[in-house]
Simulated scan of single mutants.
Amino acid sequence: MPEGHSVHRIARQFRLHFVGNRVSASSPQGRFAAGAAEIDGHVMTDARAVGKQMFLEFDHGRWLRVHLGMYGAWDFAGDITADATVLAANGRMGQTNQKGTPEQGGAGERSGAAERSGAGEHSGAAERSGPVDAAGEDSLHSIGAPRVARLRMAEQEKLGATADTFPPGPVGAVRVRLLTHDTVADLRGPTACEVLSPEEVQAVIARLGPDPLVDPGKRSEDRFVAVVRKKPTPIGLLLMDQSVVSGIGNVYRAELLFRARLNPHTPGRDVPEETVRALWRDWSKLLKLGVQHGQMMTMDGLGAKQKAAALAHRDDRHWVYHRAGLPCRVCGTPVAVEMAAGRKLYWCPNDQT
C-alpha cells in the first residue's frame, strides 16, 4: 500500500500539471460515470494530500477524494517533464508488493507523471540526481521528458514507454480519467474514489490523525502524544491506525519502531512521553526525506559506499523491514516477523526489548 510520502508526491504532480487547468473527466471503466460527470469541464483549483488520502478541488466547490488502498495507482501521460529523483526506465509505478502488470496494447499499464523543470518543491541540485535503483525508485535521468512520457505513480515510481499520440487510449480498468490539453491521469484500482462537498471533505480529514507535512507544528505533536499515551493498544498497531497518525504504513512502522529501539508490543500508554515525541519527530524527518527522494530511505549515518548501496538497492535501505530471519544490522539477532494489523511486522527481539 502506498505510504504517506507517495501520496504527497502524487498530489504535487497534480499541482504542477492540473491545477489551474480545465479538466475533462470520464470513466472509461464505467463505474465512476456519475462522479466523473460532476467534475467534467471544471477547472482544478487545488490538490492536497493528508496521509494516504488525496483531495482534488474544482472551481464549483466539489472535491475528488481518492484513497489508493492496496492496489490503486495513478498513470500520467503527456507533455510533461521529469523529476530526476524519481524516474527510471522500463517499469511501472506501482505498489511495493506488486512486481508488475502484463503489457496490453504494447504500452502496458505504464504511464507518466513528472514535474516541470524549475518547478515543484525541490530543495537543491542534490535532490535532482541519484543512482538508478534496481527496483526503479531513483534515477540519473536528466530533466526533460519526451512529448508523451508515461509514468506510473503509487508506491514505486518508474518511467515507462513513450507514445506517438495524445491522449493515449485507456489501458485496463480505468476508474476515472482526468484530461487537460496536454496531460492525462488515469486511476486504476482505488479503495475509494468519490466526489464530495467541502463539508464532507472536512469530515473525512477530521477523522484522520495529524500529518507532519500538513500540520507541522507542536500542536500536532501534542495531539499525537496525547492519543498514544492514553491507549492500551500496542504501539505497533497504533502507528498503523490512520486516526492516530496519518501516512504511516508497513515499511515506516517497522523502521520507526526499530530506530526508536521500541518493542512493538508495548502499550501506547506505557511508552515514555519523550519516546512518543521522538517517534513523531522521526516520522516527520522520514516523511520529508521520502517526499524529497521518492523512496523510503530509513537508514542514516551511513558512509559513502553504504549510502550508495542503499540508494541503489531497496534491500540495503532498511534496518529490519523485509529482513525476516536475516541478522539484525546492529546486534546480529535474526529479525523476527509476525502479523500485526493484518500486515507483516518485522522487528529485532534483542534491540527492541
Rank of each mutant, 00 (worst) to 15 (best):
Q306H: 08
V7A: 04
F76R: 06
Q242T: 03
E3P: 14
G118C: 07
S243M: 05
D59V: 09
Q242L: 04
Q242E: 08
V271N: 06
V7F: 02
R177M: 05
S6H: 11
E274H: 13
H5S: 05
L279N: 06
H122L: 06
L140E: 06
T353P: 06
L213M: 09
R9F: 02
V204R: 00
G94W: 00
F166A: 04
F14T: 13
G332M: 13
S111I: 05
M240Q: 12
G100V: 08
S139L: 09
D300P: 01
S111P: 04
A161H: 10
G144M: 01
G94R: 11
T81P: 06
N250L: 11
S197K: 03
D75F: 11
Q156V: 04
L187R: 01
K285H: 11
R48A: 14
V66I: 15
L68Y: 03
L151R: 15
L237H: 11
D83M: 09
K231Q: 15
A192D: 04
H318T: 14
R259W: 00
V201P: 04
Q95V: 03
T180G: 10
L179G: 11
R116P: 13
D300C: 00
R177T: 10
A37K: 15
R62K: 09
G72H: 07
S142I: 04
G120P: 13
G236H: 11
R62F: 05
R253D: 07
V201M: 01
T96G: 09
H318Q: 14
T180S: 12
R92Y: 08
A77V: 02
A173M: 06
W319K: 06
W74V: 14
S139Q: 07
Q202T: 08
R175H: 13
G342H: 05
D282R: 10
A25R: 09
G51S: 12
V176M: 10
R62V: 07
E221N: 03
I143F: 01
A107K: 10
M54S: 03
D316W: 03
G112T: 07
R323I: 01
G69E: 07
R253E: 06
R343T: 14
G249M: 08
V214Y: 01
P2M: 04
R31T: 14
R92T: 13
D316I: 01
R12W: 04
E157H: 14
V227Y: 08
L311A: 03
P216W: 00
R323F: 01
H17W: 03
D270I: 00
F76M: 15
H122F: 05
P327H: 05
F76C: 07
A114F: 10
V23H: 05
E57G: 15
V86Q: 11
R261N: 11
S26T: 15
D186N: 12
A154S: 15
S284W: 00
L279A: 08
A84M: 13
A185H: 02
H265D: 13
G20V: 10
G136Y: 02
L151H: 09
S220W: 00
L311D: 05
K52Q: 02
E255W: 10
G247E: 01
M296S: 13
T45Q: 08
G78Q: 04
A309Y: 04
E109Q: 09
